[in-house]
Design a binder for these strands. Sequence first.
DNA 1: ATGAAAGCGCTAACAA
DNA 2: TTGTTAGCGCTTTCAT
Lengths: 336, 336
Amino acid sequence: MVKITDVARHAGVSPSTVSYALSGKRPISAETRARVEASVRELGYRPHAGARALASSKSHVLAIVVPLRAGINVPVVMQFAVSAVTTARAHDHDVLLLTREEGEECLRRVADTALADALIVMDVQLHDPRLPLLRALDRPSVLIGFPADTEGLTCIDLDFKAAGELCVEHLAGLGHRVVGLIGSPPEVYVRQTAFAQRVVQGFTAAAARHGMSSTVHPCEATPAAAHKVAERLLREQPALTGVVVHNEAILEPLLEAFEQLGLRVPGDLSVTALCPDELAANLPVPVTSIAIPTTEVGERAVRLLMRKLEGAPVPQSTLLPPRLTVRASTARRVTG
Amino acid sequence: MVKITDVARHAGVSPSTVSYALSGKRPISAETRARVEASVRELGYRPHAGARALASSKSHVLAIVVPLRAGINVPVVMQFAVSAVTTARAHDHDVLLLTREEGEECLRRVADTALADALIVMDVQLHDPRLPLLRALDRPSVLIGFPADTEGLTCIDLDFKAAGELCVEHLAGLGHRVVGLIGSPPEVYVRQTAFAQRVVQGFTAAAARHGMSSTVHPCEATPAAAHKVAERLLREQPALTGVVVHNEAILEPLLEAFEQLGLRVPGDLSVTALCPDELAANLPVPVTSIAIPTTEVGERAVRLLMRKLEGAPVPQSTLLPPRLTVRASTARRVTG
DNA sequence: ATGAAAGCGCTAACAA
DNA sequence: TTGTTAGCGCTTTCAT
């Protein structure tokens, strides 16, 4: 293994000069720097991560906690993670993969052992048991998702309220007057996160603002439940012409149900969804949708951490604006 | 930060005694050990990862390289990774997440900087450009997947040849005599990995062994292509009653195509697939299938690495036996 | 602008 | 069975 003293000898300078030449933490003459860099290249020098971490108390490692439990959208999680890795690498950091399985313990462990300099936590619940620890920890962290109380934390996510609003506004712009939200399973509205409720808020508020009539229907993630909801909607709100779906698992069954009930999309019914583009784009009738900007969230989460590591102030909350992709499932309301 | 000397002082022993008491690398009297453990708990001591790595030249970190490119099944990759993390933790190791994006460079980097003790490489191609590096590296590695030449490497994967055979044998046992394999897109058979070819080998060999007539049809991953293949099969092999599908992207369209062509599954046609259970189980007609045992692969990959790190010999190749889950899509051939 | 030298916290000879 | 001590390779003060 080639070490810094080898480089120093080869370049005819002292080890500290090599260190400074590489870190740029103090001025080095152009000539010396060139010699050092040549030696580094020639010898293939790589600083030993452990030694560097020990001496500088910076591991240059970020930890990311991914969820495992049911109901989690795996590709979405993976996209967060991959985006985080890519961004971290651009900032000369690596990413340690943790699962939630070990619980808070693992957060404490990587922090206390100085394995990681900072933490990214996904799958945040409203009253997440990890919050006290995250607030107390001496290392910076960023949450992907919003707990009930963000005080003392740094959180980032899609602005789900704005997403709910945007869907309604799109429908309003197309002349729709009666809209319904088909949401997540009832239990999601209590446990897990606030995002489902935020969608409802945005949806309801925007509908009211536009003088539209609106209803909300939680729905289990089964085709049968989707069918029942479709029937109920039709029965209870015959004037309904616009639907927002926030439940990706039943988007397809729902569309099938509408078809079987004789409702054409978008002829009779305009449908928008909150779901991955991949899903929305590949349905028989491609669906107008808003996706979670996973890549951007992952990237910005890392950038927030970097700023915190530098001691710079960061906003407590970052809400990313939703972007709606118009596809074939929404159309102007046919009046008459 | 509480360090080993703090613990030593608190327990009234020397630092090395604390170290040995925790590592078990030399005998410690029960009494001393108890005192040390009490102090560790009381003070909340955690060894500094960097210091430990520097002194012992073991980082207790494994690196895993995940693929990003198109055509990759994200949930499958994620399952490998999560299983690897879980198993690594059980062996007191952590996992560093790398993306293939950086190429070989990142393998060299984590090895040279001693960030990771060992490597897990996924998405292995037949003539993977990383192979020379992996062979030359001073750190152990395990490949998930098989390149053309496994000499000097350690590889693990599902036994795809046996999987192809198992599908045919299942169909043979149900009385089918004419079978077809609907495979991956043509380009998969050249680039990427050997697994697609192995399935074909197993399929063909088993069919021959049972005196069955068999054909193979590569197929693009589009619904249109699926449709065309279904039509061709029907036209060219009217006696066909058994199908093996090794192309998860088109499994559903294919089943639809069969239905539209008037073929009932399993009444007229028995269908088996190589795909995730999740997919197979949730189709309109649940499909008899063989899944990649992702959890087992991930776990065993880590265990292989652990053995290599201990200096123990490990098999060059580990082929996991396929397990076929019988569902509604296969039935006894109706004769007459 | 550069060098010398003192640690960073831990492990593992070497001693006793 | 336990203690003493010399590093591991790097960063960073202090000195020049």
